[in-house]
Design a protein around this nucleic acid. Structure first.
Lengths: 205, 205, 205, 205
DNA sequence: GATGAATGAGTTTTCATTCAT
DNA sequence: TATGAATGAAAACTCATTCAT
């Protein structure tokens, strides 16, 4: 499902109304490139892989930072949407843990975007911060829901949960973790988050 | 215009005649510089703060990568030593959790070393990998000890524990976490790691 | 700013059917833009302010140089026409000094056109040189007239007078001269140009 | 494009203590290059003609603006020194007119430096403005001296005189003026500046 | 005819690394 | 051995000019 599938296009003739297409292609390539090489990956690399001239990249995104930000916003927004969808799921506990798992699993492919992504969580101003905040709030909603449903202990709060989400995403992206290992890592955290009463219930049997 | 001798600067670098081999000074400065600015901090910055010429840095460390690696090795080794010391502590459970906490707390200051440090965990060949492996083994030993002592559940294994250690260190270094939040984050993980039997015991009362 | 009277257009694209060929609008905008930013002002700026696409500019003027030249020609021609009109004025002395003054005062607004303009006086081939020459000749005619009328001393010749005209125009355009200072500057030159015999005559009375 | 073509130069070995020499060479080349091509001449051109790598230029002058400023400062300072020397000359009138003539004649070679130079007279902050002001003051002193000696009319002031100095310098630098024409241009100005009372006195006899 | 997206060559600036003293 | 000046290979960004719609 790599976006690059339709990269070559035999005759190399972009243009026309698909200038819009170009923007998207650049954005997707950028996600991949920054994902691999981190924020310090070169803009020219993006241009090359997107099959456009360097100037075209800069026409769509006036600075490298703007490009990076656009990537971040896109990613944050997608994640937020996912979180929001899950908010309405029947089982709030499952919804929360599912979201956590999927986010971390997804991260595996996007190495350093996740890096930049979450670094941006605090310092970068502008749209990225906005989008980052949006995601954070959506996660907060999921968490509360899960807590009210008794699936997550009441005494944890968003900051540490979000930090764990970010931390494990990065770990998943960069460490060379087998899938099993990643799952066991999550299991530990989920255990730590699990509502004690529930555990108690199980134990009492 | 003697170069290094009279570089006075408000008392910074006494530059005693006995001059501890520059190598050490460079290494320490490098740890600080890379800790602040990340791997992309400039080598000249290191030279400047170490009060040596840029060429001197390159004499001791033939490439920037070598310098970075040396920093990593030093850091890994220190951590390993710390872990090894704790191995002989009376309470293996406390030892394990203490080590975990201290490592994460320490990381807070060394922003991007931690970054590079742990990235090196896998890809960089050479001494850093070696040292990284040494640390990993020492942590493994602590873990086993704690498990035998019943402080950590038996079914967790080193890879996920180490991944969590790395992940939370980075989070601690880069996210804007208050000390309290960091502690609560660790509490969750420690809870997840804690030996279930023990919990059970407590609950049964 | 006179020609551009219909620049504002709250509605963006008046595009009246009669649409005075864009050419004129572009030309006027270009005069203003190059006047402010010098020759290095960007062609896109011109297009933007003229409310046309960049390609339209290049359709009318095949290169930036051509556009600049057209601006120069227009300006030279206007000045020449002004000079020619004054040629028939009743008082040739007043005509000459008036023309000089007005040119210099006008220049004040058109910073770097004047610059390019007069640089073109010599090197650029083509129409601009032609137009420049036309202006020069018209000034020469004014000068001769004034000399015959006894208002300007006989021993000055066109080259130095024209050089002074150019020089003071540029000074007026770029130096931070108050109006008064500019006038005093001109007064000095006019004194130097004034017919000595006449002065003598006046004095003898 | 490769700079290496003309880099070798038979036996030229820079380096050693003549790093200082390098700086000077760059500065001189820069004066020439900017003199020809204006401020928009490329820094690489300077490097090439100075037979150094581009980075060397930037080592000595951290930005292009700094290089330009250094050139300006050098030039302003030289002129100021010349003016100051002339201040002590026996004949203040001759001193003033000589300085004026020499400055203008000198300018002929340094086309667009003069341009940038004097543009800097107002906008650029920093050392150039400082140096520019120093020159202006020195010229002011010469002028006053000449006025007290009765060689220059009393009612002219520095601003217009300085403006004329600048204007004619630029004209001399860029217009294609023969030496004779330049002299006649100056003659006109000098006539305009000459003390009227004195002339009157002569005439009344 | 008009449009604006695309382009590549060019510019300034940085940095790891080498060399002569 | 230590020094810092010199270097060229990037990298980010700009702009005149062309091309498909």
């Amino acid at each position: 499902m790599s976006t690059s599938g339709n990269r070559d296009m035999g005759g190399r003739r972009p243009q026309r109304a698909d200038a819009r297409t170009n923007r998207e292609r650049i954005l997707n390539v950028a996600e991949e490139v920054f994902g691999k090489g981190g924020q310090s990956a070169s803009t020219e690399e993006v241009a090359r892989l997107a099959n456009v001239g360097i100037a075209t990249v800069f026409r769509h995104f006036p600075t490298k930072a703007a490009l990076l930000e656009a990537v971040l916003v896109q990613r944050f927004d997608r994640l937020r949407e996912q979180a929001e969808r899950l908010y309405h799921a029947p089982d709030p506990g499952a919804a929360f843990f599912d979201f956590f798992s999927h986010l971390v699993a997804d991260a595996a492919g996007k190495i350093a975007i996740t890096e930049a992504l979450f670094e941006a969580g605090g310092d970068k101003g502008g749209d990225a911060a906005q989008a980052s905040y949006g995601l954070r709030r959506a996660v907060g909603a999921l968490l509360q829901h899960a807590q009210r449903a008794g699936a997550v202990r009441d005494d944890v709060e968003l900051p540490e949960v979000y930090a764990l989400l970010v931390a494990t995403s990065r770990a998943s992206a960069q460490a060379h973790l087998e899938e099993e290992e990643r799952d066991r890592m999550l299991a530990i955290i989920f255990d730590g988050l699990a509502s004690l009463p529930k555990a108690r219930a199980r134990l009492k049997t």
